[in-house]
Every structure is written in structure tokens, then in C-alpha cells.
């Protein structure tokens, strides 16, 4: 029972990180119809910036995360302006390739600037506490709490503000939104900024548990894609549900099936689901 609870909390932590990354991806997809393969680069840089700010200035963990959010959000905007905006009328293959180019570039850049070693990020939340009889680091609790708060804030933003409403409107109907006078450029930039900010938060939260290294974005981004597809592209509730399902499945799978093959679980899950439902689990019937 203890083992189960332990894995339950681990799954929740894992799922929270996947959810944050996946929401960023799904927002960008819903609005711009770009599967942003470069999202992993945003995650990667988010992790490094937080670490470097902490190391370089001795700033508090939270201050460093805040700095990272700003940097990565700006980077997201820059990506949109310099790469995806010029490609908006190109065939769909092109923006995917450009995104791949960005990933390759940023990974090399990180290696050049910060080296290839695995680095530790020390979080102030490294003490163990006991929850429901299970001993766990408070960092894991932090991940779950912050992810929850961020998702609530994001939902409020999308529901209550003009900008948020524009993002939703554009996700539902691009041309229609354009006709009612929504500034498509502003919405696109905003979406990339949010997407980047979420990636930075996710990376900074996960880094004290998983270390910081140049390929840290790889697996996370692939799994986030799994989450996005399962949850339906463009759907935030879908991303939350699917993110948690994936986190749980992996955590339980690692314990009860095989730790070696745990990364495969996510991908096999996707293959099975897409085999049955080519447009994802929660995708609507018509396009």
C-alpha cells in the first residue's frame, strides 16, 4: 500500500510536469496549427536559465524561476516573429522542419555555453516530509501545487480577460476571429509567450529532481506530444487529463512492470490509442 501511494505521488508529480509542457504545446497548436517541435528547446533553456541565475547571482530559487519565465517567454515570442510568422502561409511540412532546425540549434548552443555535463539544481525544498504515511521530498509537493496554481491562473486568464478570450476565439475559428477584429499577431505572440513561460516553469520545477543536461528536453517533449495527441490538439482540459494519466501510467508501470521499459509505456500507449482513434482520444468527430 505504501509503495502504491509512493508511486501515486510520483505519478502525480510526473503528470504535473507533462501537463504544464503539454498545455503550452496544445495552445500553440490550437491557435497556430503548428506542432512546435522546438518546444523542447524552450524547456531546455528554461531549466538552464534558472540554474545559471541561481549559480551566478545566488538568487533565490523562485526569483531564478521568475527570470527564466521572462527569458523563455521572450524567446518564444522571438521564435514566433522570426520563424513561424514568416512561414504561416507555407505548406505544413515547412514549419515542422524549421522547428527541428531550432531544436538542433538551441541544443548545440546550450552545449557550447554551458557544457555537456549533468548539473544539479539545489532547491530550497529538499527536505523530506511525510504525507499520508509516505515519505517524499517537499519538491514533489511543490511541483504538484505550483502546477495546480498555474493551471488555475491560466484558466482564469483565458476565461476572464480580453486577451484570453481572443486566444480562445482564435483557437476555435481563425478567420472568424480575424473578422471580429482580433489582432492575430498579438494573439500569436502572446500564445508563444505563455507556451514558453509554461515550459520554463515545468523545467525549473522538474530540474531539482531530474538534473539539468543538454538533452533534458528530448523525452519530455516527446511525451508532451503523446499527451497532446491523447488529449486532443488544442484542448487544455484534455492535456490535463492526459498528462495525469500518462504520469500515473509511467510511475505505476515502472514499479509493477519494468523500470527499463518505462519510457516505452508512454509511446506504446500512444501507438495503441492512435491505432484505434487516429485523431486522438478526445478529438471531436468532425474537423
Amino acid at each position: 500500500m505504501d509503495l502504491f501511494l509512493q508511486q501515486f505521488f510520483n505519478g502525480l508529480t510526473l503528470g504535473s510536469v507533462y501537463t504544464l509542457v503539454a498545455i503550452g504545446l496544445t495552445l500553440v497548436f490550437g491557435i497556430l496549427h503548428i506542432p512546435n517541435f522546438a518546444h523542447g528547446a524552450l524547456y531546455l533553456i528554461g531549466g538552464y536559465v534558472t540554474l545559471m541565475v541561481m549559480k551566478g547571482t545566488g538568487a533565490h530559487y523562485f526569483v531564478a524561476i521568475f527570470a527564466s519565465i521572462i527569458v523563455v517567454a521572450l524567446l518564444g515570442i522571438l521564435m514566433e516573429r522570426l520563424v513561424f510568422n514568416p512561414l504561416r502561409n507555407s505548406p505544413p511540412i515547412h514549419d515542422k522542419i524549421a522547428a527541428i532546425g531550432l531544436v538542433l540549434f538551441f541544443e548545440a548552443l546550450v552545449q557550447l555555453v554551458w557544457g555537456t555535463e549533468y548539473l544539479r539544481m539545489f532547491s530550497p525544498f529538499d527536505n523530506n516530509i511525510s504525507v499520508a504515511g509516505v515519505l517524499m521530498t517537499s519538491q514533489r509537493i511543490l511541483v504538484i501545487v505550483v502546477a495546480f496554481v498555474v493551471v488555475v491562473l491560466l484558466t482564469l486568464f483565458l476565461k476572464k480577460t480580453m486577451m484570453g478570450a481572443s486566444i480562445i476565439a482564435m483557437a476555435q475559428n481563425r478567420e472568424g476571429a480575424f473578422l471580429v477584429g482580433i489582432n492575430a499577431n498579438a494573439v500569436a505572440m502572446m500564445t508563444f509567450a505563455i507556451s514558453g513561460a509554461l515550459a520554463a516553469i515545468a523545467a525549473s520545477l522538474a530540474a531539482p529532481i531530474n538534473l539539468v543536461f543538454p538533452s533534458m528536453g528530448h523525452l519530455v517533449i516527446l511525451k508532451a506530444f503523446v499527451v497532446v495527441i491523447i488529449g486532443g490538439m488544442g484542448s487544455i482540459p484534455g492535456a490535463i487529463v492526459a498528462g495525469l494519466i500518462l504520469g500515473m501510467t509511467e510511475s505505476m508501470g515502472a514499479t509493477y512492470i519494468s523500470n527499463d521499459y518505462k519510457d516505452m509505456i508512454a509511446f506504446l500507449l500512444l501507438v495503441v490509442i492512435m491505432t484505434i482513434r487516429p485523431k486522438g482520444l478526445f478529438a471531436k468527430g468532425v474537423h
Binding site: 520563424v83 507555407s90 524549421a98 538542433l104 538551441f106 548545440a108 552545449q111 555537456t116
Partner: peptide, 20 residues
């Protein structure tokens, strides 16, 4: 070798934008 992509990555992006 480690840094090939510093050049190749941008080349790829540049190509799809300007010389698809």
C-alpha cells in the same frame, strides 16, 4: 563536431523560409 548545429540549425530554418 559538437557545435555543427550552431550553423546547420539556422541554415535549415533559413532555407525553409527563403529557399523552400
Amino acid at each position: 563536431q559538437e557545435y555543427h548545429m550552431l550553423i546547420f540549425g539556422p541554415i535549415l530554418v533559413f532555407m525553409v523560409i527563403f529557399f523552400p
